[in-house]
């Protein structure tokens, strides 16, 4: 495995150093502890020992100037080990590590074994949480001026992408909806957990009653489609949704606990449900993704509340 040789830290206040001389030429072998190269920092010229044994490969085209601590300047390879093609190709770019983090990140992904020390992209926990909420990949973000990706970096990126941040949902941590990431789509989502104990009992009894008559029982997806339709009809401001084909989406994924939601073309609202838990305390998470341009948050909340009521008290379907 190639061992990355970097500009070492030689003092507390040192920030950069210039490579003065390599004591080994490309292809020569070095033994751990032997002098490998010398650097000039703000205080002195100093020999640096090899920290690994192997075949030396100094990066070509290193600029003759002070390089920041952690900048890769070469590799020590196992005998017979080839220089990775992308290392050779990217050598000049990688040498100015830190000013082009995205290149380094992609190089690191392509060949993780040579990811140089210092190339790891950093972020604050808050930035990661927010990026996840917004459906963004924090690794793809750039912070002007460098440094770890912070909350503000994510918020700015989201603003630039013309997104509106989804309102925080108290019920449970939602999986980021990919709908929010779609260009131009203004989507928010809500999650709510419902007690499915009564529904589990009802579906089981229905199943046994119908199978005695050799009739197929409606499964959870079919049942949920009826709940969704009844829930939309339950209030004035969402009734039109149920009446217009395509505007109300319904989806059940019986393998998932919480769903990642995507609004389809033409949909204003997508009501979805995950797997129903087992046993008497069974629970199910209902999710609602909605287009802010077509549906208010209040209306969306009423729709989700109505759906929860219909899950928790399934007999209410008879009255709808």
């Amino acid at each position: 495995m190639p061992y990355s040789v970097v500009i070492p830290r030689l003092g507390l206040t040192m920030e950069a150093a210039r490579v003065v001389q390599w004591y080994k030429q490309a292809g020569e072998t070095v033994t751990r502890g032997e002098p490998l190269f010398s650097v000039e920092s703000d205080k002195a010229v100093q020999d640096i020992e090899a920290l690994a044994s192997g075949v030396v490969y100094p990066l070509p085209n290193l600029p003759d100037e002070a390089l920041p601590i952690g900048t890769p300047i070469g590799y020590i390879l196992a005998p017979g080990e080839a220089v990775p093609a992308e290392v050779a190709a990217k050598a000049p770019a990688a040498a100015t590590l830190g000013v082009a983090p995205s290149q380094v990140a992609s190089a690191a992904q392509a060949s993780p074994v040579v990811a140089p020390v210092g190339a790891r992209k950093l972020s604050s926990p808050a930035a990661r949480r927010r990026a996840k909420e917004l459906g963004l990949d924090w690794r793809s973000l750039e912070r002007p001026g460098g440094g770890p990706i912070l909350l503000a970096t994510v918020e700015q990126a989201a603003q630039q992408a013309g997104q509106r941040a989804p309102a925080p949902v108290a019920a449970s941590a939602p999986v980021a909806p990919s709908a929010a990431a779609r260009a131009g789509a203004v989507a928010e989502w809500l999650n709510v957990e419902a007690d499915a104990g009564a529904l589990v009992t009802l579906l089981a009894r229905l199943d046994s009653a119908l199978s005695a008559r050799k009739q197929p029982a409606p499964g959870w997806p079919a049942w949920f489609a009826r709940i969704a339709s009844a829930a939309a009809n339950a209030s004035e401001d969402t009734r039109a949704l149920a009446a217009t084909p395509g505007r109300l989406g319904v989806y059940v994924d019986e393998r998932a606990d919480v769903l990642s939601l995507t609004l389809d073309e033409g949909q204003a609202v997508l009501l979805s449900a995950g797997r129903i838990g087992q046993g008497p305390g069974a629970r199910v998470t209902l999710s609602l993704s909605y287009d802010r341009a077509q549906v208010t948050r209040e209306a969306a909340g009423r729709l989700l509340d109505a759906a929860r009521a219909l899950v928790e008290q399934p007999w209410l379907l008879l009255a709808s």
């Binding site: 604050s124 808050a126 912070l150 503000a152």
Partner: peptide, 8 residues
């Protein structure tokens, strides 16, 4: 208990 809210 507040790890994912820390920005520094």
């Amino acid at each position: 208990e507040a790890f994912y809210y820390l920005d520094a």
